[in-house]
Design a protein around this nucleic acid. Sequence first.
DNA 1: CGTCGATTTGAAATCTATCAACGATGGTGG
DNA 2: CCACCATCGTTGATAGATTTCAAATCGACG
Lengths: 241, 241
Amino acid sequence: MITPLIKKFERRFLLSDVDRAALESLDTILLQVRSRKSFLLEGDSPEYVHVVHSGFACRYKAFPDGSRMTVGFLIPGDICDLNVSTLGIMDHSIRTLSECEFIQIPREALSGVMAEHPTLDRAFRWVALLDESILREWLISSRRRSAEQQVAHLFCEFLVRLQAIGVVDQSSYHLPLTQADLSDATGLTTVHVNRMLQRLRREELIEFKEKNVRILNIDGLMTFADFRNSYLFLDHQSFIA
Amino acid sequence: MITPLIKKFERRFLLSDVDRAALESLDTILLQVRSRKSFLLEGDSPEYVHVVHSGFACRYKAFPDGSRMTVGFLIPGDICDLNVSTLGIMDHSIRTLSECEFIQIPREALSGVMAEHPTLDRAFRWVALLDESILREWLISSRRRSAEQQVAHLFCEFLVRLQAIGVVDQSSYHLPLTQADLSDATGLTTVHVNRMLQRLRREELIEFKEKNVRILNIDGLMTFADFRNSYLFLDHQSFIA
DNA sequence: CGTCGATTTGAAATCTATCAACGATGGTGG
DNA sequence: CCACCATCGTTGATAGATTTCAAATCGACG
C-alpha cells in the first residue's frame, strides 16, 4: 500500500527486507479527496501522516486578501505533513489539484518505525531535505529566471519528478493544472503565464493543452530554463547503504 | 561554549539539566574566519557541524557566471551544515559577511547526543524547519512583495532575529552588509536597492548607514512590509516539554 | 440556449533593470 | 604625506519586462 513512498526511498537508499517489511506492516488507511479541496490547513495538527498515493496536490500559503501562493507541488510518493511531528502544527496548507488518494499513517507508529530503523529515519530526513532543495530552487527561479524561463523550469521539474515515478510516456505527461495554477506557483499573472505558454509553444519547446504536457524539445527546454536536475537528488552517486 | 545554540533551543524547548550537560560536554573547537570568506562550499563534506558563535554569514548558491544568490542569513546560534549528516554533502555554500567565530562539533558525537536525548533531537529538527520556514518566506517576499517591501521585510527579519538573541539596542542593530549584499539577498540590482533604501529613509521607516540599522518606526515598517513574525517560530505557544 | 470557468487579446501603466558616470571613502605603497 | 586604487554609494536617462484593466472568445455542461 505504501509502495510509492518505498519506491521513492529506494531511488536513494538500499532498504533491507526488514526495513521494507516495517513500512509495509504499518496500519494505513486510504483516504480519497475530491479535486480542488483544501484538506490540510495551516495550523492543523493532523494525527496521521499523509502520503500522496495518486493525484496532484500543492502546498500553499493563504493570505488575508484571499489569494494564495503555491510553494510546492506534491505527486505520488510525496509526504504532506512530515514536519508536524516536530513542529506540532502545519505551517502551510495543502490542497488537491486533482482527485487524490492519500495514505494515512498513524504518526506514533511511524515514529516508532523510524526510531527502530536508522535507514528509514535517514530516508525520511532525506525527503524533507529534498523538499527544501526544491524550495530553494523555486526561490532561485523567482529571482534569476525570466517569466518564460520560470514556466519552462516548472515543466522541466514536473518532467523529471514524474519520470522518477514512472508516469511519463515519451516526454508527455498528464498535468491537471490550469494556467491560474501556474500563476499561483510562479507569482506571475495568469495573463502573463498565458503569453509565456504561447511563446514556449511558438518556440516549439512544449505543448500544454487539455491537461496534457508534451515536451517537444527536451534539451532545448532544459537549456532555455537553465534546468539542472541535481537539486532533485536523483543521481545515485552518494548512495547510502 | 555552545551557549548561543542552547539559548536558541530554549526559546522553544524546556531542556533538562541532562540535555544541557550533554550539549555542553561536547568536545568543540572554536574556529575564526575572516570577513567575506567562503568557508563551506557546495559539494563539501565537512566533518564537523558548524554553529555560528559570533558574526554574520550567509548561505548562497553560486552560478557559473560567477554571480551568487544569497538564500539565507546566519547569525549567532544558527547551524551551517546540519543537513550534511543526512545528505552527505553541502548543497549550497556558506560565506562570512563579517569576521566570524564558528563552533565546530564532531559530527559523530553530535549524532550520539541526538540519539540519546530525544528533546535535543527534536530541537535540532526544529531549527531545520525554522530555516525552511524562513526560506518559504523569502520565496513569498520575492513573488508578492515590491522591491521596497522586500528590503523592508529583510530589515524586519533581522530586527526580530537579532532581538531574539539579544543584540538589538533600542531598535538599532549592527548589520555589516553592503548594499550589494542586500541585492544578492533580494535579487534586485544594487542601484535599485539603493533607491529603495532612500525611499525607506525618506518615509522615516529606517536608517541604514555605517553598517548600522536604526528602525525609526517599527509598526510602520512591519505594516508596510507585511511582516508577520509567526514564520520565525518565536512564540512559545506550542511549547514542547 | 445560457452560464461559468478558462483562455486569449490589446493597450496602457508601472516597476525594475540596464548602462554610464560620478563622488566619497579608506587602504596601500611609494 | 601623497598618489593611487578599489570598493561603496549615488544619480540620471533609457529600455525592457510584467502588471493592470478591460473585453472578447471558447468550450463544457446543465
